[in-house]
Design a protein around this nucleic acid. Structure first.
Length: 482
RNA sequence: GCGCCCUUAGCUCAAUUGGCAGAGCAAGUGACUCUUAAUCACUAGGUUGUAGGUUCAAGUCCUACAGGGCGCACCA
């Protein structure tokens, strides 16, 4: 909308007229006596209150005006009439206050004949004159693009959206509390890294002018956190943003929030205990339940203990006892018959994994720890002592999505170098030599895990898109913002 | 990156087989001192996402582009 638009022009003129009268349309500090919710909760007839918030609607009866005022805790009706606010102040109020403006009011509580708890306004102050109109609250803001680009409108208009993000905040706070109480230290490691290691994902590139070098936004903090294990901390975590230069989808945002936890002298099994304890505690303390209902009505039952099953056993359970006995070509034929696609040169373990991800993972609704994945899939984990073809890891799947991987971390610097070299296909320049040098000084045996916070919040709030749990999801720039 | 779908007033939505672009709310003016999706009367509000094309005539059909949604690909 252009400033010349009539809807803006009338409001801009009101702003100018306020200024001309010596009234600041953008107020200043306004001392509130309490929140709207507190005012409602402590009703005493004629009790004086001072409240501030946004005007959401108004019903003008001529010599008396009713409005709805909304703050972050709730909404309350205002009643403005000349008898209580004064003739002059009433005239100003009618002339200048519009839906969408932020006002402060002082008045007394009463209940209308219709039974509505209301503030009879005695004084008011303009705190912020909105010069753009608020979308009609009754209809809401349905346009998904506008809801994301102008999230503030989404938050003003939709309490359920606000609630999701407040839950997210409490979930994150609860995770920090849970880990800190158990002796884990929160640390911060570089987001700008000379080599983007710790995950096989395409990084974003940036450039440091003074150093004259390219840097990468981190795809994972893992290799730095392990340096800290070498440095002698035993229990550490980092809860912050990762960046991956990949496609955007219902489950992917280029920047996303990840928790990584490391515990010296632990292993993937202690990490399974930690993951289960953490997520169930968060659910109980934040949601007050261990049964989450999805939008389609299906329930996710988080009651422990959670199932643990070996990758191989789960694949045989779902795809047939003979799956791994098949010849490679038979396995490919069966995978193709199930509608699973894979590159023609895909190694055998990738064919099975493609089938796993397409046909098994989406059906795992209640939490399942899938353990002992093929070693090729996980280069930073320790191989199993009995079966070196698999690694001591788990993949926690809830609601058909990977929520958390966990490892017995590889701490043999010689094996680690070999596996990273093999992964880099011989490109030694891609090796994080500093990390390998750190490992060579001795890293204690350790368990580690990562929890995708966005997906955890999706699961716990029933959100179907990652954009519903990220305040400002990545969008293409638009020039036609209304 | 590929495929399918969507885009009409500030917001939410209509518009028959291609035939004068409409409504509700919001806005402006007026009435109303207990309303609450307030009510009543009147007024204004549009290059139908952008640029082309077909046609006597395009919101409607065709092409390209932009933005969005979903799916695929990418993503250990």
């Amino acid at each position: 909308m252009e400033p010349g638009h009539e809807l803006m022009r009338t409001r801009l003129e009101k702003r100018a007229r306020l200024l001309a009268r010596g009234i600041d349309p953008y107020g200043g500090a306004f001392e509130v006596s309490e929140s709207v919710a507190a005012a409602r909760a402590n009703y005493v007839e004629e009790r004086p209150v001072r409240l501030a918030g946004r005007v959401m609607s108004h019903r003008d009866m001529g010599k008396s005006v009713f409005l709805d005022l909304k703050d972050s805790t709730g909404r309350i009706q205002l009643y403005v009439q000349p008898k209580s606010v004064g003739e002059e102040s009433f005239a100003l109020f009618k002339e200048f206050v519009d839906i969408g403006d932020i006002v402060g009011v002082a008045g007394r509580l009463f209940v209308t004949r219709a039974g509505e708890l209301t503030v009879r306004v005695e004084q008011w102050q303009m705190l912020s004159k909105a010069i753009r109109p608020l979308p009609k609250e009754y209809y809401g803001l349905e346009n998904v693009e506008l809801r994301q680009r102008q999230r503030y409108l989404d938050l003003i208009l939709h309490d359920e959206v606000r609630r999701v993000f407040e839950l997210r905040s409490r979930i994150v706070a609860e995770i920090r509390r849970y880990l800190t109480e158990r002796g884990f230290l929160e640390v911060e490691t570089p987001m700008m890294q000379p080599i983007a290691g710790g995950a096989a994902a395409r990084p974003f590139v940036t450039h440091h002018e003074a150093l004259g070098i390219d840097l990468f936004l981190r795809v994972a903090p893992e290799l730095y956190l392990k340096r800290l294990l070498v440095g002698g901390w035993e229990k550490i975590f980092e809860l912050n943003r990762n960046f991956r230069n990949e496609g955007i989808s219902r489950r992917h945002n280029p920047e996303f929030t990840m928790l990584e936890v490391y515990e010296a002298y632990g292993d993937y099994e202690t990490m399974m205990e930690l993951a289960q304890g953490l997520i169930t505690t968060v659910a109980e303390n934040v949601l007050d339940t261990l049964v989450v209902r999805r939008q389609d009505g299906q329930e996710i039952n988080l009651r422990p203990p959670w199932r643990r099953v070996r990758y191989r056993d789960l694949v045989e359970e779902r795809l047939g006892k003979d799956w791994f006995a098949l010849s490679a070509s038979e396995r490919r034929a069966r995978a193709t018959a199930m509608g699973v696609e894979f590159p023609p040169d895909a190694p055998d373990y990738e064919v099975t994994n493609a089938v796993f991800e397409k046909t098994i993972e989406p059906t795992l609704i209640d939490p399942v720890f899938v353990t002992h994945l093929p070693a090729e899939l996980v280069v930073l984990a320790k191989q199993n002592k009995e079966d070196p073809s698999v690694v001591d890891v788990f993949e926690l799947v809830i609601n058909g999505q990977e929520i958390a991987p966990g490892y017995t971390e590889l701490n043999d610097p010689v094996v680690q170098r070999e596996r990273l070299l093999a992964q880099a296909a011989g490109h030694a320049e891609k090796l994080d030599e500093d990390f390998l040098v750190a490992l060579e000084h001795g890293m204690p045996p350790a368990g580690g895990m990562g929890i995708g916070i966005d997906r955890l919040v999706m699961m716990l709030t029933g959100a179907e898109s990652i954009r519903d749990v990220i305040l400002f999801p990545q969008l293409r720039p638009s020039s036609r913002l209304t």
